[in-house]
Design a protein around this nucleic acid. Structure first.
Lengths: 237, 237
DNA sequence: ATCGAAACTTCACGCCGTATAGTTTCCGCA
DNA sequence: TGCGGAAACTATACGGCGTGAAGTTTCGAT
C-alpha cells in the first residue's frame, strides 16, 4: 500500500504540475491573447525551463489542444447549467437563458472564445478526437434541445423552404442527437444550426471588436435578437 | 521634365515593388493562412532580404494593415457590385444577391476573411484610420441600404421590443448613414446589424470549419437562412 | 564626373518551438 | 539501509521569426 500511496503521490504531483501549466497558459492567454501562450513564457512564470514542459505535453499544439478541451468543456458546462436551471415548460425562457449564458461566458473569456472559434494560435491544427469535439456536440445537442422544444410551434409559424434530409447532416452528430430526440425532423436540426449562427455571429462581431465600432451597447442588440428569435419561433407569450 | 520623368520612374518602380510585396503576401496567405505572412518568406520569394521590405513598410503590422485595407476593399467592392447589379424594386432579391456575394467572396478568400474578421496575425493591433474602416462602413452602409429598403414592410411584420435611439450607435457610422437614409429610424440600423450578425455567424462557422463537422452542405443552410430572413422581413412574394 | 539619396545587404539581438544529451531527484525494492 | 533506475528537469544547439544599426551598391541630378 506504500506503493499505491507513492504512486498516487507521483501521479498527483504530475497532475498538479500539468494543471499548473494549463493554468498559467490560461492566465497568459487571458492577459495577452492566444498568442501569449508560449512554452518559454509559461516556463518563465513557473521558474522552469521551457523544455520541462515537454515532459507533460509532447508539443505546444498538444498543450493548446488540452486548453481548448478545458475551455470548450467549460463553455459546454456553462450553457448546460443555464439550460438545466430553467423550467422545461418555458422554451422561450430556456432559449434566452442559454443564449445569455453563452454570451456571458464569451464576454468573460474572450481569449477562450477566440481559442475555440477563431484561429487559435499560429499554425495550429486540431487533432482528431479529444474532449473538444465532445464539448462541441454537447453545445450542439443543447441547441438542438432548444430547437426541439420550440419546434412544435416554430414549424407552424414558418415552414422551411428548403427540404432537409438526414443525409444533409454529419453522421456523428445524428448518432448523438436522433436517439435523444426521436420525433425531431431534419429541418429542426437545421433550425438549431441557424440559431447557433445568429448567436455566434453577433458574438463574433462583438468579441473581435467589429460591433463596437458601429454600436455602443451590443447588449441591446443581443436582447433584440433574442426577442425576434423567440417571436419568429412563435413563442411569444 | 527629365526630372519629372525620372521621378515618375522611381516612384513607379517603388509602387510596383510595394504592390509585388503585397501580392506575394496575399499568395502566401492564400496557401498557408494568415500566419504564413512573414517578412522573411516574402523576401525569400522575391529574392530579397527580409530587411529590404522595411523600405516599403515600416513594420510587419503596417504590411498587414495594408493587406487588410486591400482585402476589405475587395470585399466591399464585391458586395456593392452585387447590390448595384440588382433591381431597386426587388428588396428581397437585393438581400439575396448581397448575401450570396458576401458568402462567395468569403469562400473564395477564406484567408482574407480570417484576416479581416479573425485574429489576423499574432499580436497585430489595428491602427486608427486607413482604408479598412472605410470599407467596413461601406459594407455596413450596404447593409443599411438593404434594411432601409425592407424597413417599410419589415416594421409592420414585427415591431422591435427594444427601443433603439440614435445615441445607441457610433457617431461616425451615423454621420455616413443618416444623410443617405433620412427617413430611417434607429431600429432599422439595429436590424441591419442583426442581419449582418446572421450572415456573419453562419459564415464564420463555415470558414472556421465548425459547420462542416455538423452539416455536409452549408449551402443549403445558408439558403434557408436567407429564405427565413426575407420571410421575417415580410418580403415574400 | 561627381555628389547624394534611395535601395538593398550584412550582421546582430532577442524571441520562439523543439531535438538531443546530460544531470539531478527520489521512489521501490533487495 | 542502500542501490538501481525511472522520472523530472537542465544545458546546449538549430533554424526561423521581427527588427535595429551600420555598411554597401545603384543610379538619377547637377
Amino acid at each position: 500500500m506504500a506503493e499505491t500511496r507513492t504512486r498516487g503521490r507521483r501521479e498527483r504531483l504530475r497532475a498538479e504540475t500539468a494543471a499548473e501549466i494549463k493554468d498559467v497558459a490560461l492566465r497568459l492567454m487571458a492577459s495577452g491573447g492566444p498568442d501569449a501562450i508560449t512554452l518559454r513564457a509559461i516556463a518563465r512564470e513557473m521558474g522552469m525551463t521551457a523544455n520541462a514542459i515537454y515532459g507533460y505535453f509532447a508539443t505546444r499544439d498538444d498543450l493548446v489542444t488540452a486548453l481548448i478541451d478545458d475551455v470548450y468543456t467549460g463553455l459546454a458546462d456553462a450553457v448546460d447549467a443555464a439550460w438545466a436551471a430553467t423550467a422545461a415548460d418555458d422554451p422561450a425562457g430556456r432559449i434566452r437563458a442559454w443564449a445569455h449564458a453563452f454570451r456571458n461566458w464569451a464576454l468573460a473569456n474572450p481569449a477562450g472564445f477566440r481559442l475555440i472559434y477563431g484561429d487559435p494560435v499560429p499554425g495550429y491544427q486540431a487533432p482528431e478526437g479529444g474532449a473538444a469535439p465532445d464539448a462541441a456536440q454537447r453545445v450542439c445537442t443543447g441547441l438542438t434541445a432548444l430547437a426541439a422544444a420550440a419546434w412544435p410551434r416554430a414549424s407552424e409559424a414558418s415552414e422551411a423552404s428548403e427540404d432537409f434530409q438526414w443525409s444533409d447532416f454529419d453522421a456523428g452528430l445524428l448518432s448523438k442527437i436522433r436517439p435523444a430526440f426521436p420525433d425531431l425532423p431534419p429541418a429542426a436540426v437545421a433550425l438549431a444550426l441557424r440559431i447557433w449562427g445568429h448567436l455566434h455571429g453577433l458574438l463574433c462581431l462583438e468579441i473581435y471588436g467589429h460591433l463596437r465600432t458601429q454600436m455602443l451597447n451590443p447588449d441591446k442588440l443581443f436582447r433584440e435578437e433574442l426577442a425576434q428569435l423567440v417571436r419568429s419561433l412563435g413563442l411569444t407569450a
